[in-house]
Design a protein around this nucleic acid. Structure first.
Length: 201
DNA sequence: CCTGGGATTTTCT
DNA sequence: GAAAATCCCAGGA
């Protein structure tokens, strides 16, 4: 079985590298006896203190402190009052960088979404192969049951991690695009720092 | 196809 | 007090 949890060394590489290498890796969240699993299909890189799209570009704040920490930790924040976004901290301590997980595929067909405010009990629509495509950082967190309690968690421990199951994404199947929702970021807004697997978006 | 607005709360100014 | 690394739905063309 080639199923190996990614360690600190993996995350301590250039963020643009980590963002691409995370495609095809599996996110695992263990809750009691159960695991929620999804294969990562879309990521975005947030690279260093000068990246105006990054929360860390305005320096250390209570929220962004984790981005300045060790690689391999979870950075989870709430946006628009109702959605969480999950990132993985990359690169060395004191260099603020992270990869946002924007999309996954799950093989757990027909799961009900966790109830959420007034919108309850809607199903994730499976495709013909019985896979659930989950596109968007807010939906990834809803599906994986990621919330602020996981902020600051060490992803090399045994609660929430990323593992390699031997899926290899060939270079030509990795597509690049502009990051989403960062029009305010000046010359950084058009960087092609979003990565996704061809035909899995 | 497109545009616009509501939900809801943390964060920074 | 405004904006935010979002999502969903309604309405018009």
């Amino acid at each position: 079985m080639s199923s190996k949890k990614l360690g600190c060394n993996f995350y301590n590489q250039k963020t643009l590298q980590v963002a691409q290498k995370l495609l095809g890796k599996f996110l695992v969240h263990k809750i009691g006896q159960k695991k929620i699993v999804g294969m990562i299909t879309e990521t975005e890189a947030y690279c260093g203190p000068k990246d105006l799209a990054s929360h860390a570009s305005r320096g250390r704040t209570p929220r962004t402190e984790i981005m300045f920490g060790q690689p391999g930790y979870a950075y989870v924040y709430l946006i628009y009052g109702m959605y969480y976004c999950f990132n993985i901290v990359t690169e060395r301590k004191n260099y603020p960088a992270a990869v946002l997980i924007r999309g996954i595929i799950s093989d757990q067909r027909g799961r009900r979404r966790p109830s959420h405010s007034s919108r309850q009990n809607r199903r994730v629509l499976p495709d013909q192969q019985g896979l659930d495509f989950i596109n968007g950082p807010g939906k990834v967190c809803r599906y994986m049951k990621i919330d602020k309690k996981l902020n600051g968690l060490d992803l090399t421990e045994n609660k929430f991690w990323v593992e390699n199951r031997g899926v290899r994404i060939k270079k030509p199947t990795i597509k690049k695009g502009k990051r989403i929702g960062v029009d305010y970021a000046g010359k950084y807004k058009d960087k092609l720092w979003r990565f996704y697997i061809k035909n899995k978006k």
